[in-house]
Design a binder for these strands. Structure first.
Lengths: 151, 151
DNA sequence: TATTGTTATACTCTATAACTATA
DNA sequence: TATAGTTATAGAGTATAACAATA
């Protein structure tokens, strides 16, 4: 056995990169927004947590601190995020999404959802339901694996 | 209506990047092989088609010719692929996977499958079946969308 | 003139190594 | 001494624009 895992793995390896590329392109298409996927995820995480640190973002994204730092650099330069020394521990940096950041991430989310939904519209309700259940199952196992923490 | 598409889109937008990152990391982990995802996909496509052209790969990956050219540069430098002027149309370049390329892509595929399958092993048979069906449905709609052609 | 591929240039992602400031 | 973050450096992905060779 473990044969079904094997076949399932093959499907994921074929299909996930295709959808990932679609998302990336869609995210980039709306030029006024112009977010990359990690930038989008960083903004969304910072908003969802109501503020975090660089280390928190790094763990969420599964990236090293230097990589994360550069992504945050870009967001801070565009004033989508603020970066302030933590008063409790001066080594830490508190990240907060700005009002503009909130608007941009909401717009990017809406536009990307629209692009995805338009493709999904050719599937019937049963298939959509199945995909949602699959995504929930995958999220659980992959998030359990891909270190995570909110600091 | 269109509400289920919308929720399904949201799930995809959350979960796909996580799995994509896992695949990328897994692909890179086995350093002897050291393939990136587009390199892997290029090799796999070249092998599957029994030979293709640069334009063929570009369409398959959904990338521009210059981007594709650079990816092929890297593969050719490592002698995983050969690049020869087409005898019928001298503008075209025929790509062929080499023996070493075949070995490398097979190893990368096996290792990545192993990594994915080990995570999937915590899911039961019913869930795995559902994921496979979902992936097949998604592949159909996204490949229909993401231009494709084999030259 | 249109097509195929390449080169030039530029930006982002991502990593490792080395460094600064703070605890 | 250990931790949080940054800077330096480097390789790969990706795009647009400009170009060469061929049809």
């Amino acid at each position: 056995m473990a044969q079904k895992e094997e076949r399932c793995a093959r499907e994921l390896l074929e299909v996930v990169p295709i959808i990932a590329r679609f998302i990336r392109t869609e995210m980039r298409r709306h030029r006024a927004l112009g977010l990359t996927v990690p930038q989008f995820r960083t903004l969304a995480f910072t908003e969802r947590t109501g503020g975090t640190t660089l280390g928190g973002v790094a763990e969420h994204l599964g990236l090293t601190p230097p990589s994360t730092c550069k992504i945050v650099d870009g967001l801070a330069a565009r004033e989508l995020i603020t970066r302030l020394q933590s008063p409790r521990d001066h080594r830490k940096v508190n990240l907060q999404i700005t009002a503009v950041g909130k608007r941009v991430v909401a717009d990017a989310r809406r536009e990307t959802h629209k692009g995805l939904a338009s493709i999904l519209s050719s599937l019937d309700q049963r298939e959509l339901e199945r995909i949602m259940q699959s995504m929930r199952a995958l999220r659980m196992v992959f998030i359990g694996e891909t270190v995570h923490a909110n600091t």
